[in-house]
Design a protein around this nucleic acid. Structure first.
Lengths: 235, 235
DNA sequence: GCACAAATTAACCTGTTGGATAAATACTGT
DNA sequence: ACAGTATTTATCCAACAGGTTAATTTGTGC
């Protein structure tokens, strides 16, 4: 009842207000970067007064860190639900790639936030205590898959789990994060349904071929035509 | 003589001034992003008056596009000198990876500029006519290597050259561009000499294993210890 | 030396921005 | 109903930033 009243009058709802502020801030920082983000716009988007940001979260930098922590928390939480332990190792890796890829597609702000934070040389993240502890379980998860793969003979070589994850994230991240410039310079729409499907196939095939030593058919899919030069196309 | 005089008095040297402005702008945009960059700071760094920027190049956005075009021109020019035609295909790919990696290390501003431009959804690049034409020869170069590799039997599968290049760039780019946040969350210095060497080995091994089907020893280098969990390390 | 254009400087202006102050309003327990 | 606290609003401001105007200096062709 008190809760319902709070929701009806969404003023005087501190927790809700805080969430709306963080959501608005996430959008704003993702769209405009740190320096380009406007505190007033965040307030407007959150349906709040500018003063509220400072009251509920803090100054611009604090806001940014809070958004960033929330973003990491969200992806790592979803990853925990992947249940890689019960899949055979190649499938587990394929699933991790698939998840990462689709998570990045579903959450484009995450990519922008990370880029922005790296431009700032992780100056905010370094101040965070939460974020560091989030990642050891995640690395453990991958480490276990790799070890199982090596033991079962599915994987030819033992690969450093961190290195492997960075590579998987890299393949997904770069394509999506840089799709705007890549689309221009290569003159292709990289975000069409077909292009995205093709990319996922390519990434899974690339990583699994390297791990298992068995080439995956999909690696070469759709590429016969791509090997012909433009001149040959018209000829 | 007239040239020498010009160089001595670096005022009244329009071309030189333009170059100094673009260099200063590159540093400023790379360090602070588009919105964070300060026109006054660029002027100061270039040893010029703010009005000079507008006189020689244009407004902030024009300045940014000029810097970006210069950056693309530089990397594509260096790539043209790689001479991949005379190497056997696996070596050619290894060389391309090695070059890309080291170019990114030598030119960190390039990474930042691309990220910034992607945050702006390639709004400047789309206006550029120069940049688009720069890239067909580059794609041709890779296409030829892949085709030769398939014909010689070195490569198991035909892979789309654009897809392959994006993957190579991704592996290098993401690691370096995101090294600040990655170092924090994984608690490792990813930019130490050893870490960088290890990364290059990993990337070359990953891509060549996938292309040739033969696993590369370096893929698993240094990783035996990494497969032990932290608990086991102390045990 | 002189006219003319190119290059450079200095000063200014207007809108904006992050952040602060202080007052008002609504909810809580009593 | 009331006192006290948590939440919210309205307003202000000083610093700054991008861009412009207009005057000044320097080199060039004649």
């Amino acid at each position: 009842m008190a809760k319902a009243k709070r929701i009806l009058k969404w003023q005087r709802d501190p927790e809700g207000m805080r969430l709306r502020i963080l959501e608005a801030a996430k959008q704003e920082f993702a769209t405009h970067g740190l320096a380009g983000a406007r505190v007033d716009r965040i307030a407007a988007k959150a349906g709040a007064n500018k003063r509220m940001l400072y009251y509920h979260v803090g100054k611009k930098d604090d806001l940014y860190l809070a958004v960033l922590e929330g973003a990491y928390e969200k992806i790592r939480a979803e990853e925990r639900g992947l249940d890689l332990e019960h899949l055979d190792p190649p499938q587990a890796i394929a699933r991790l790639i698939d998840f990462t890829w689709n998570y990045f597609i579903r959450n484009p702000e995450f990519l922008a936030l990370l880029n922005t934070e790296n431009l700032a040389r992780a100056r905010h993240l370094k101040r965070s205590t939460k974020v560091k502890s989030m990642h050891s379980p995640f690395v453990e998860m991958i480490r276990t898959v790799v070890r199982r793969g090596v033991e079962s003979g599915d994987f030819q070589v033992a690969v450093d789990p961190v290195q492997l994850y960075i590579s998987i994230a890299a393949l997904c991240f770069f394509y999506l994060s840089n799709s705007a410039t890549l689309s221009v310079i290569f003159g292709r729409d990289l975000l069409s349904k077909e292009a995205k499907d093709e990319r996922l196939d390519h990434m899974v095939a690339l990583v699994l071929a390297a791990l298992t030593g068995k080439s995956v058919a999909a690696f070469g899919r759709n590429t016969a035509a791509r090997l012909r030069s433009p001149a040959e196309h018209t000829a």
